[in-house]
């Protein structure tokens, strides 16, 4: 019995010299990028489910375990994870991944930020992020820059595979830039009036910027504040006036209001996937292509 117990405990001990770089990413999109850059030299874990609102993640103690083993933690940054990640980071007892360490990679540090508030940030404006809008994984141009920076960071942490990381990162960067340009051109071929959209939560400025979409209204009156009847009535009026037909939202927001607005304005709702289905082997390129495809199909109907 005692031998069995000992075997169990020893079997569970992490191997002292694990061969692969242990990478933990908060968002499944970032995890998918890390896997493409790292290839078979890294083991990647995503903390957030693709259908989960990354603002509101239950800080389950089980999430401490991958963080405890991690050589590299990839966060989105701009306070997207501030509601749940910091206590997990402390509980992980892992100096490698503390904020500022080499094994802490903040993706927002390498992208061009949008919606950076000027002047004082006041919460009467809703739940806004003082450093800028954090939802840049919707833009493959941002993802391309993240891939390159990740390649450099992995090379620094694991010099034996440095060449492989940098080569993978370069190839991924180029693929994402091509994809971004191809889709941008395809959307640009649509008339500007047809590229008007309504967005549920102000989480898609990067997507709008990439694909040349013009948001005419948000279903939420202010970020994080649920819609009210007078506000929704105004949204409908604006949709009708601008002849915007398409409402974009992420899967974790409620859909009835958007569906009703779409019906009354003679349009449709496009529900965007929250992230790559990382656990099922999905790639970032595949997921972002599906997003662009779904929006293009809705706009051209």
């Amino acid at each position: 019995m005692r031998a069995l117990l000992l075997a169990l405990i020893c079997g569970a001990l992490p191997l002292a010299a694990h061969a692969r770089l242990e990478v933990v990413a908060t968002l499944p999109d970032l995890a998918a990028l890390a896997r493409e850059v790292g290839g078979d030299a890294v083991a990647v874990t995503a903390l957030v489910d693709p259908n989960e609102d990354p603002h509101y993640v239950d800080p389950k103690p089980s999430l401490v375990l991958p963080l405890n083993r991690a050589d590299l933690l990839i966060v989105n940054g701009l306070e997207l994870e501030v509601g749940w990640l910091p206590p997990l980071q402390v509980a992980a007892r892992n100096g490698n991944i503390q904020t500022g360490a080499d094994g802490y990679f903040d993706a927002s540090s390498v992208v061009d930020r949008l919606n950076v508030p000027g002047g004082k940030v006041d919460r009467a404006q809703g739940d806004i992020h003082p450093g800028g809008n954090p939802h840049f994984v919707f833009d493959p141009r941002a993802a391309a820059r993240i891939a390159t920076a990740l390649g450099d960071r992995m090379a620094r942490l694991d010099p034996t595979h440095a060449e492989q990381y940098r080569a993978n990162a370069k190839a991924l960067h180029d693929r994402l830039d091509d994809l971004a340009e191809r889709e941008r051109a395809r959307f640009a071929a649509l008339p500007a009036a047809q590229r008007q959209v309504v967005i549920y939560h102000d989480s898609l400025p990067y997507l709008a910027d990439w694909l040349g979409l013009t948001p005419v209204a948000f279903v939420e009156p202010r970020p994080g504040i649920p819609p009210t009847p007078p506000h929704v009535a105004k949204v409908l009026q604006r949709m009708k006036k601008a002849e915007a037909r398409v409402i974009l939202q992420e899967a974790f927001y409620p859909k009835k209001t958007s569906e009703t607005l779409a019906r009354l304005a003679g349009g449709r709702v496009v529900v965007l996937e929250g992230g790559a289905r990382f656990g099922a082997g999905d790639t970032y390129s595949a997921r972002i292509t599906r997003v662009a495809e779904a929006i293009h199909a809705a706009l051209s109907r």
Binding site: Y56, D58, P59, P226, P227, T228, P229, V232, A233, L236, F252, Y253, P254, K255, K256, T257, E259, T260, L261, R263, L264
Partner: peptide, 22 residues
């Protein structure tokens, strides 16, 4: 139109979808 919007808002608010502040 107003009635439809009000009903939709209520339906969304009623779903266990979307919400808790841990």
């Amino acid at each position: 139109e107003q009635a439809a919007l009000a009903a939709a808002l209520q339906a969304d608010a009623a779903t266990v979808e979307d919400a808790v502040h841990p």
